[in-house]
Every structure is written in structure tokens, then in C-alpha cells.
């Protein structure tokens, strides 16, 4: 089972990202589950969402404490929140940042960065990074690009959907493996 934790700020679409990922993984033929830390949501406050992906039905109902992967939508969270808490050895940290991965150090973790904010501004005209990061997740093999593109297109629909799809594809192309 693959367990992924999303760190973001209220209003950045962390929960939506986890939901889209779960639907996309399901379209890939996997079982999936997505849920937020349910709380009293406030814009700008640190939030977390989770996604589990497995080959067999998922029965676990607790939060994700030992993720295989963490997605950090906002690098300013790193100083406030223990974003790698419980991360598995050799676990992956994907950060929305213009900086190269070497500038971040998390013990025992593999760090990847993608400048999702720039990509979002270029394609969407707004710094909404959640779909952009899903493109990067597709590049990392978590889910197929096709499924992410389809689900993102459906979720937002129309012009917004098209723009989001472009953002997803750009992130896919830009993320170095």
C-alpha cells in the first residue's frame, strides 16, 4: 500500500488534490481512499490530507502516520510543521519550490522540487498549485498521466479544466526524474 500525505494551507486545494489522486489511481485499476484531517478549516492555516493507494481493498480508517511520500504545497510550511514526521526510510518529499532539491535536507529522504507556483501562474494565472503537483506525481509513477489528465479535466470542466490539464502536463515535463 502506498500512503501519501499532503501538506498545504487552507484554500490551496490540498484536499481536492488528494481526492483527484484517489480517483485517478482508481481509474488506473487500483483501490484508493482520500480524506482530509477533518477540522475547522481556515484559509491560510496548515492543513493535511491523505491518500492511500493499494492493489487490494483498503480497510484502514486511521490517519496516515508513516507515509511513503509527502507533498509540500507551500515551502513556508517547512519551518512551522514537521512535514516529514513518520516518513518512511528512503521516502519521497515533493516540494513546490523554485529551489533545487539540494537546498533542502531531510534525513534519509529523497527530495524532489518543482516550481509549481510559476507553472500555475503561467498557465492558470493564479498561484493554485494542487493540480500542477499532481502532474509531478504522475512523473514519479504514482499514477498515470492519462488518468490525472482525465480526472482534472472532468473535475474542473471547460476552460478551467483545459488550463489545469496544461498545468499538469507542464509539471510532468519539467520534473526531472
Amino acid at each position: 500500500m502506498l500512503e501519501i500525505r499532503f501538506h498545504g494551507r487552507g484554500g490551496q486545494g490540498s484536499v481536492t488534490a488528494a481526492e483527484i489522486l484517489a480517483i485517478a489511481a482508481f481509474r488506473d485499476g487500483k483501490y484508493s481512499q482520500a480524506f482530509p484531517i477533518f477540522g475547522v478549516e481556515r484559509r491560510g492555516a496548515p492543513v493535511q490530507a491523505f491518500c492511500r493507494i493499494d492493489e487490494k481493498p483498503i480497510r484502514l480508517r486511521c490517519q496516515v502516520y508513516e507515509p511513503d511520500m509527502v507533498i509540500i504545497q507551500d515551502a513556508t510550511l517547512i519551518s512551522d510543521v514537521d512535514v516529514t514526521a513518520g516518513l518512511k526510510e528512503e521516502g519521497l518529499v515533493l516540494i513546490n519550490s523554485a529551489k533545487p532539491p539540494e537546498e533542502f535536507s531531510f534525513d534519509g529522504a529523497v527530495v524532489k522540487t518543482v516550481d509549481a507556483t510559476r507553472l500555475a501562474l503561467e498557465t492558470l494565472g493564479r498561484p493554485i498549485v494542487n493540480t500542477v503537483l499532481l502532474g509531478a506525481l504522475a512523473k514519479l509513477g504514482v499514477v498515470s498521466l492519462n488518468s490525472i489528465v482525465e480526472v482534472v479535466g472532468m473535475k474542473f470542466g471547460g476552460k478551467t479544466g483545459e488550463k489545469n490539464v496544461i498545468a499538469v502536463k507542464k509539471a510532468f515535463e519539467e520534473l526531472p526524474i
Binding site: A22, F26, Y31, S32, Q33, F35, P36, F38, I58
Partner: peptide
Amino acid sequence: VLTHTYES
């Protein structure tokens, strides 16, 4: 736990 979770 059930009402707000996305699952198949």
C-alpha cells in the same frame, strides 16, 4: 470517517 472520505 465515512461521510467525507472518497473511496470506491
